[in-house]
């Protein structure tokens, strides 16, 4: 059994090769910018920007849709509610207690566009960054939290180990399910209670195994002199390169465009 965790799409594009910190910071800034947007023209610019990013990262279009699928329901609901309950000036259509205003449609459309932009924008990082790099990036960006005694290194180490063990546990679950099936367990029962019960013989051995593995891993780490984050050097280093500078400039241009459209020229 093979489980692909996260949504990483292997590749070596410009976006893939960026430093994870650049990508994480840019994503954060992008989200703030999207929340500032007030006009369709700025959304159009955002669409162009995102299209450029996806094309340069070689992410097929179907993945854009795939990341939207999860939030489609929320988008639809908020869209409908906004349309029905928005109070505006120009009444377009009304029936009994439902009134639809022109402003309502515009507002709802902008809301939907905002959520769509946020989701698509955030998916770029997960599509182009391995979980290891993502952990590294997060660790680096969270380093200031050390001042408030937050164990940044330990948290990152735990996340890294957890990510590494996911496929191993997926395999193990598969094997235990098969073994209990061979002993007459029935995992396809129609009744919910029966079905939940049938997983007890899977969960207990899995839990014990997790415990044993954790114990052995701790010992192996200990034997290789692991004693937490202090005094440790790092093999994997992150380096800002020229690519990151270019990415930064492109992103700044996009940001400036948004600000100009929204606050200076107020283009609708």
């Amino acid at each position: 059994m093979k489980v692909s965790f996260g949504q990483y799409l292997p590749g070596s594009s410009f976006i893939h090769r960026l430093d994870p910190r650049t990508k994480l910071l840019a994503t954060l800034a992008f989200m703030v910018l999207v929340l500032l947007i007030k006009s369709f023209s700025a959304y159009a610019l955002t669409a162009v920007f995102l299209a450029a990013v996806f094309i340069s990262a070689h992410i097929p279009f179907k993945y854009v849709l795939r990341s939207l699928r999860a939030v489609l329901f929320i988008i639809a609901i908020t869209f409908v509610i906004n349309i029905f309950f928005f109070q505006g000036k120009e009444l377009l259509w009304s029936w009994k207690f439902i009134h639809i205003y022109k402003d309502g449609i515009i507002f709802s459309a902008k809301m939907a566009l905002r959520v769509i932009s946020l989701v698509i924008g955030a998916s770029v990082v997960t599509y182009t960054t391995t979980s290891v790099n993502l952990t590294d990036g997060l660790e680096a960006l969270m380093r200031p939290l050390k001042i408030v005694r937050f164990p940044v290194h330990e948290a990152a180490m735990m996340m890294g180990i957890a990510l590494k063990f996911i496929p191993i546990f997926a395999d193990e679950t598969d094997r235990i399910i098969k073994a209990q099936t061979a002993r007459g367990s029935d995992f396809d029962s129609r009744r919910l209670i029966e079905r939940v019960k049938s997983y007890i013989p899977v969960l207990i051995p899995l839990f014990i195994s997790a415990w044993r593995r954790a114990d052995e891993l701790a010992q192996a780490m200990n034997a290789r002199c692991y004693r937490g984050g202090s005094g440790r050097t790092r093999y994997r280093v992150m380096k800002f390169s020229k690519l990151d500078l270019i990415a930064l400039l492109v992103f700044l241009a996009y940001g400036a465009g948004i600000i100009l459209l929204t606050y200076v020229f107020s283009v609708p």
Binding site: V132, K164, M221, R224, C225, Y235
Partner: peptide, 15 residues
């Protein structure tokens, strides 16, 4: 422990 061969070999050295 490491995600790749080289990182795993480096683990003890990092420590």
């Amino acid at each position: 422990i490491g995600a790749t061969v080289e990182e795993d070999i480096a683990f003890g050295l990092e420590n």
